[in-house]
């Protein structure tokens, strides 16, 4: 297909050799949070997904892939947009895995699963993930992975999400706002991607 697709596959291939490591992270979360189906889902969507989303930056720094991107017949714009495409793919992947695991966990525990609570969690996690990526990626693109403290940007958002979840603040109160939240997440992501691809379109 087009250049962004090819660049997304390239990001995927750079991350691929480290898959065992990511599976270990996932396994760790399963072990830690198996008691609570919803907790498990939140964990995959809010911790695993952002962690995976920044991997192309880390590997690019380590293996001088910025040079590869400048040597390959692919525009810088496509490479930048592909970072975002990769993030969305990762989020969807984490979501599917998280939901599936949560479902299994719910069955095992005999808990109820689905309905309003599920929708709320999914929308919340999406919005937070989107904000997270929209803030992080321009920084990572501008300064590189080694010079940006990824934890510093992930942690506050992850903590808000966890706090909200633990305090059951959002489950019912947020219902009205959910559609807006979902759209806002997508919008923030699109704006960040568009701006980044424009501002950083020239090399160095």
């Amino acid at each position: 297909m087009n250049a962004v697709f090819r660049a997304t596959v390239l990001h995927m291939r750079s991350v691929a050799p480290y898959r065992t490591q990511f599976l270990l992270v996932l396994a760790l979360m399963v072990v830690l949070d198996l008691r609570s189906p919803t907790g498990l889902m939140v964990a995959t969507a809010v911790i695993l997904a952002p962690y995976l989303a920044v991997q192309p930056f880390q590997i690019a720094d380590k293996a001088d892939l910025t040079t590869l991107y400048a040597v390959l017949p692919v525009t810088r714009r496509a490479v930048l947009l592909a970072y975002y495409a990769w993030a969305v793919v990762v989020y969807l992947g984490a979501l599917i895995v998280g939901t599936a695991l949560s479902y299994v966990a719910a069955r095992v525990e005999g808990d109820a699963f689905g309905g309003g609570q599920l929708t709320t969690l999914l929308t919340m996690s999406w919005a937070l993930f989107a904000v997270n990526v929209a803030v992080q990626f321009p920084l990572l693109i501008r300064f590189g992975y080694t010079r940006v403290n990824v934890l510093a940007t992930i942690l506050p958002i992850a903590l808000i999400m966890l706090a909200a979840y633990k305090l059951h603040l959002t489950i019912d109160a947020g219902q009205v706002w959910l559609p807006l939240l979902g759209v806002a997440g997508a919008a923030v992501l699109v704006i960040s991607a568009t701006l980044t691809a424009h501002v950083f379109r020239h090399p160095e």
């Binding site: 291939r13 590997i59 293996a63 001088d64 590869l68 040597v71």
Partner: peptide
């Protein structure tokens, strides 16, 4: 130096 992922 190479500009490929070391694990490839």
């Amino acid at each position: 130096h190479t500009y490929f992922v070391g694990e490839w």
